[in-house]
């Protein structure tokens, strides 16, 4: 069964159906939005368990606001990214940054175990580098380059101007490149 059984329905429409008690809409929204909000929270927090808590909390807030949702006023995903970002920032400010958790070893019998291991290593390096960025730069880079959102939507989520988003992502990317450049070869990118 496909993860999203009704790709033609917008989040807006599904949320209104959800508010009317539609179980199928609840399922579709869960499958459609949870991975996105989890990915954002994982990159922001660098901790899987905390990211899952944030994702669940953000989704719970979406369920609670559903009956009052006004169609067309805001994008559901934008609203959700914003809630998740705020929850992440609250957590980041409450405690010092946690170390990036250990990356699980791939199974030995996997056909491309070596390739998977290198992918894991690269993603772990990216997570480590992201964790070293200032909070706002990290958020902007994640939304732009990992969540693939447009600058106007990011501006709305972060409550800043589009120009400020461009500046944050450019500076964030420059800093990421500086952090990761010494490991380029080690991570499997030929320097020719």
């Amino acid at each position: 069964m496909p993860l999203d059984a009704t790709p033609e329905l917008s989040d807006d429409v599904l949320l209104i159906r959800f508010a009317n008690g539609d179980r199928a809409a609840a399922r579709t929204l869960t499958l459609r939005l949870t991975p996105r909000v989890l990915a954002q929270a994982t990159r922001m927090l660098g901790n899987r368990a905390e990211a899952e808590d944030v994702a669940q909390e953000a989704m719970l807030r979406l369920w609670k606001i559903a009956p009052d949702w006004r169609q067309g006023e805001a994008q559901v995903s934008t609203w959700l990214y914003r809630v998740a970002a705020n929850l992440c920032i609250d957590r980041l400010r409450r405690k010092p940054p946690a170390p990036i958790e250990d990356v699980p070893e791939p199974a030995d019998d996997a056909p491309n175990a070596e390739g998977q291991m290198q992918t894991r290593e690269r993603l772990s390096a990216l997570d480590g580098a992201l964790a070293r960025l200032p909070e706002r730069q990290r958020q902007a880079v994640i939304l732009r380059h990992l969540e693939n959102l447009g600058n106007p939507e990011i501006a709305e989520i972060m409550d800043i101007s589009v120009e400020a988003v461009e500046s944050l992502t450019a500076r964030g990317k420059r800093q990421l490149a500086q952090i990761l450049a010494p490991r380029r070869e080690e991570l499997g990118f030929e320097d020719d």
Binding site: P35, L38, R43, M59, W63
Partner: peptide, 23 residues
């Protein structure tokens, strides 16, 4: 690579919890 990796990131357990909250 990171974008592709995030596609399957949500565990069945988390999805079940979120759905339980929804219902």
């Amino acid at each position: 690579e990171a974008r592709e990796d995030a596609q399957d990131a949500a565990s069945p357990d988390l999805l079940a919890r979120v759905l339980q909250d929804a219902e």
